[in-house]
């Protein structure tokens, strides 16, 4: 009876997992199918072809868009990690005038919907003359309130004695952050990195507003313009361009996901 229940449980879970993974696998396999096969539900193509990727690459500057997206997403992710953790460290562990106000202000930023700031931000970018520049894609995202608050919460849990010991050892506050806090904060840094990278990588609306030059377009932006503008011509080509968009995020997730579980914080203290 117990075995039967277990078999039923696993069967249900497998079915649920397949429901989630099937569309992605279908999309991946369809990019290698000729146009005649794309309409079928089969996962393994009868005939494998790279024509969809060749067509996509030939019709629009996807290589350049890939470079642009990588540059923008990587820069934003690094900046959010470095600047965000510096801010979070100060908010969590340093005593200074105005700290409660800074905490409250950071929290308040979360309550303002992003769409609300689009127009003032766009006006600012126009005034600065940053339209069709990387700065327009990067600078507004250098600080991220969610990341700061997540890092702050994590930093609050690190024992004060580690900071004291590091100060006694002669470290500056910046050194404490990057030599002691960062190695102990891998789980939260990984989560922040993945969410920031994905958020930046998938962003469409903002690049559509501030970039018109095709050579500066990010991947999802170009993909939107390409697919919605009818440039793809076929479902296979559209799926191939979507695949190019998804793969780097999956790779980034695989690279960082082990840090989600692993936590070293607390091992050097009592217990």
């Amino acid at each position: 009876m117990k075995t039967l229940r277990r078999i039923g449980l696993y069967a249900g879970l497998t079915l649920a997992a397949l429901t989630f993974i099937y569309p992605f696998l279908w999309m991946a396999s369809s990019t290698f199918k000729p146009p005649s096969e794309v309409g079928t539900l089969a996962l393994i193509p009868d005939q494998i072809t790279l024509d969809n990727y060749r067509t996509m690459w030939a019709r629009a500057p996807f290589g350049r868009a890939l470079v642009n997206s990588t540059l923008v997403a990587t820069t934003i992710t690094l900046a959010v990690l470095v600047l965000g953790s510096m801010t979070a460290y100060a908010m969590a562990r340093l005593q200074f005038r105005g700290r409660p106000a800074l905490n409250a202000a950071t929290l308040a930023v979360l309550l303002v919907p992003g769409q609300l700031t689009l127009i003032p931000l766009y006006t600012l970018i126009v005034q600065l003359g940053w339209i069709d520049m990387y700065a327009a894609l990067i600078v507004p995202y250098l600080f991220n309130a969610t990341a700061i608050l997540m890092l702050r919460q994590f930093f609050l849990q690190i024992p004060q004695s580690l900071i004291d010991a590091a100060r006694m050892d002669g470290m500056s506050e910046l050194r404490i952050l990057f030599t002691i806090f960062w190695p102990l904060s891998k789980p939260v840094l990984s989560i922040v990195a993945i969410f920031t990278f994905m958020g930046s990588w998938n962003e469409v609306l903002w690049p559509l507003l501030v970039v018109r030059d095709q050579q500066l377009m990010t991947l999802p932006q170009l993909l939107t313009v390409f697919a919605l503008g009818g440039g793809a011509g076929s479902v296979g080509v559209s799926l191939a361009s979507a695949m190019v968009l998804v793969v780097p995020v999956v790779i980034a997730y695989m690279f960082l996901q082990r840090n989600f579980i692993e936590s070293m914080a607390g091992a050097g203290i009592k217990g």
């Binding site: 024992p159 004695s161 580690l162 004291d164 010991a165 590091a166 100060r167 006694m168 050892d169 002669g170 470290m171 002691i180 190695p183 102990l184 070293m264 914080a265 607390g266 091992a267 050097g268 203290i269 009592k270």
Partner: peptide, 20 residues
């Protein structure tokens, strides 16, 4: 003076060892 310029060393209640 800051701690590093005082020429003192401290042993903490919960040891304060760097776990990594």
């Amino acid at each position: 003076l800051p701690p590093r310029e005082r020429d003192v060393a401290m042993v903490f209640q919960d040891y304060g060892l760097y776990p990594h």
